[in-house]
Simulated scan of single mutants.
Amino acid sequence: MSQFWTHGLLSVTVLSLPAIVPLLAQGIMVGFYQVKETRKPSYFVKLAYGYLPLVLAGNLAHYWRLGLGEGGRILPVMFATFGLSGEGLPVLVAHPAVIAFLQGTTLISGVLLSLFLTQKIGRQPFSLLLPHHVSTIVLGISLWWIIVGF
């Protein structure tokens, strides 16, 4: 408890970074609009729906390890919980490389779907939505480092 405020402030800062990246992208879009007087950018609340496939992919990628690693041990653990012998029950666990492949594939799919959905929702040229596309890729890379680990 002696370092509560330090840890609390650091936690709030780190947890707010994923929200700041898309807001910064929207700020860049509005800045381009004011400087070059191009098409008016879409509202942020509308474009935020484009990030949902990435959010879903991040959650799925996180739970691949639990589902394919520890989920295959559910029968022996359940029997041991009730005091029964779980010996001889099947244990189905995926290789860590398979789990990492599925996590990476899920994240890449989420980034691509987010790019596509943001483009469809925004209904603007690719160059005007480029800040949001870059922020989607940055968030996808950060999820890759956190979840897959390399």
Rank of each mutant, 00 (worst) to 15 (best):
109 S>P: 00
59 N>W: 14
132 H>F: 08
94 A>I: 06
129 L>V: 02
127 S>T: 12
127 S>Y: 13
126 F>V: 12
91 V>Y: 01
68 L>C: 11
118 T>W: 01
80 A>P: 12
72 G>V: 10
105 T>N: 10
68 L>W: 03
114 S>E: 02
114 S>N: 05
123 R>C: 07
70 E>Q: 13
57 A>E: 04
92 L>T: 13
102 L>H: 04
84 L>D: 05
71 G>F: 11
83 G>N: 10
95 H>F: 04
72 G>C: 09
84 L>F: 15
98 V>D: 02
91 V>N: 03
126 F>E: 08
92 L>C: 03
124 Q>L: 13
120 K>W: 07
120 K>Y: 06
84 L>R: 14
56 L>C: 04
63 Y>D: 12
106 T>V: 05
75 L>Q: 10
85 S>K: 07
80 A>Y: 11
58 G>Y: 01
55 V>C: 06
116 F>M: 11
63 Y>Q: 12
131 P>C: 05
66 L>V: 14
116 F>I: 06
99 I>H: 07
127 S>L: 12
130 L>Q: 04
118 T>L: 13
119 Q>T: 15
93 V>H: 03
128 L>K: 08
122 G>I: 01
60 L>N: 02
83 G>I: 08
67 G>D: 04
73 R>L: 13
110 G>E: 01
57 A>L: 05
96 P>M: 04
98 V>F: 09
63 Y>N: 13
80 A>S: 14
128 L>H: 09
108 I>F: 14
106 T>A: 08
55 V>Y: 08
83 G>H: 11
130 L>M: 15
124 Q>A: 14
99 I>T: 08
56 L>F: 14
63 Y>L: 10
129 L>K: 01
56 L>I: 15
122 G>D: 00
79 F>H: 07
